[in-house]
Amino acid sequence: MINVEHLHYSYKIGKKGKKSTVPVLKDVNLEVGKGEIVSIVGRSGSGKSTLLNLLSGYITADSGKITINDRDVTNLSEKEWAKFRLEHFGFIFQNYELIPSLTAFENVELPLTLKGVPRKQREERTQILLESIGLSAHEDHYPNELSGGQQQRVSIARALITEPDIIFADEPTGSLDSETEEDVLKLIKDLNKNRNITFLMITHDQEVAAIADRTLKIHDGKMNQERGVYFEAR
């Protein structure tokens, strides 16, 4: 499903003429199978978010190869990445990243709108999903009228609406209290089980890592385990 080989990435810093590079990821290898929940842990600045950004196509690797769903996506153009993301990925962000001027319903509906799904069809799908996730009572609420947990549920619903193969979650419970965190994690686990969605989660929270099938650790830009090997089995 996701295959990363010898991935290198460096940040360019400094002004023109005094530019220097800071290596962030060094020869990272990773393999994630269909229906797995994989968590990546590491300290701040270890490169875990950079890895997620590379896998999402937000930045481009210096070298190495990324294959997702048997397609080499390493050098896709911005336009091709946009299409690929819309087709295959769902995203859950730490800060939910909902559009403030759209209601919960419209936020969830957004990926379908971007895909060009006809209005009637997308409204039906959004309605069903919101009901299944327990948010139909709040569908007309704007993000600032929802609690953190509700906002993250909306964010999860938005990630699910296109029925993606993979969901990337960046600190999915980072902004939630412990009770809400438990709810969200349960929801992720259920979705994985019932819909066979692959989850790749970035976290430094042991509770989150605990729901993963396996957890990989990044330290100073290096994945300290060989690909596919359990770092910490549940």
Binding site: K79, A82, R85, E97, I99, P111, L114, K115
Partner: peptide, 15 residues
């Protein structure tokens, strides 16, 4: 911010 979210989700830049 809104543009960033839309692009992150997969909005085509030309759109």
């Amino acid at each position: 911010h809104e543009i960033g979210i839309m692009k992150a989700l997969g909005a085509n830049p030309s759109v």
